[in-house]
Design a protein around this nucleic acid. Structure first.
Lengths: 168, 168
DNA sequence: TTTGTTGCAAAACGTTTGCAGCCTC
DNA sequence: GAGGCTGCAAACGTTTTGCAACAAA
């Protein structure tokens, strides 16, 4: 048994060939289940946000999500924030706070649990995967704490910024 | 050789009996070295901020640091933020962005590299140490990235919030 | 003397909140 | 029909910025 009782991880097992449609459908089901269990309403806005996120790749922030949705849907900023909070609670989305800038989100659709390299020079964020690190962290148990998900950020200098610093 | 070229970790090796005075003195030396190497000025305000941090324990944020310093020293909020940025760059201080709240800082004085459990229910942050996790992460090398420090946050529910959720 | 650094206050920024009206249940 | 949820805009709190004065080099 994995200490990380993460709905999404369990739902989307290792399957690199998984169709996108299928993933979106599964995500919708998970959201529906979550809303029902918590006696929350199944509003079209909530599904619209979910869809928009599932059609995109990589990191995004609340503002970019809001902007991207204008035109296609009519959803307010407040609803974007509200819905992100719900998706966070249902483990369909993960939130990162890299620099001091705005929060970054990611869908937990694929099984690609990864870690982050954040350059303190230019602020760029790269991803990397390390099975050994992942399993080590996920194997850890806690007496009075139920882990849901984790974020590992390694801060340092990318090669470009390292060179810049040398020249000075 | 450790991939983490962290000034502070190298400077303060495992030594649980280290005198606080000594640690402060070492930290001042490190700051001086950093300022000189980067052609920055050794202002009294910068050393005052360093001292105040070194006399405290645990996490703090910019505002609490600023407030605590009023009376004893006369340092502006802007200088607090500026100096924290310098201490961050010199790896004398580490910065965390837990929830959506303000950033938390910590001195890197002792060798207690630790990880964090963040409760998504009440927002409380607990620390834990795990040598296995630590060494696994620190052993990792990167082709085009020089790691400085890392933060590992495990988000989940503390036992109190877990019980609350059940009752609903 | 030069110019990096300071204090102050205003501005910026992401996020949250209050409220009237809407729509799910 | 009740009240959870929405859009809108104003408010919030943290962090950044602009600028004149100061002081380290």
């Amino acid at each position: 048994m994995c200490g990380f009782a993460c709905l999404a991880w369990a739902m989307f097992p290792h399957d690199t060939g998984m169709k996108e449609e299928y993933a979106l459908e599964k995500a919708k089901e998970a959201l529906t289940k979550f809303l029902q269990e918590n006696h929350l309403r199944k509003t079209p806005e909530r599904y619209a946000v979910l869809e928009r996120i599932w059609r995109s790749e990589g990191h995004f922030n609340a503002e970019s999500l809001y902007r991207d949705m204008q035109g296609e849907y009519r959803v307010s900023r407040a609803t974007v924030y509200n819905t992100l909070e719900l998706l966070l609670q249902s483990h369909l989305v993960v939130k990162h706070q890299f620099g001091q800038q705005e929060a970054q989100y990611e869908k937990v659709a694929t099984d690609k649990v990864h870690h982050h390299l954040v350059c303190t020079g230019c602020g760029k964020v790269k991803e990397f995967s390390d099975k050994h690190i992942r399993t080590t962290i996920q194997a850890r148990r806690f007496a009075y704490f139920e882990p849901g998900y984790y974020t590992l950020c390694i801060y340092g200098l990318c090669s470009k910024c390292k060179q810049k610093r040398r020249k000075q």
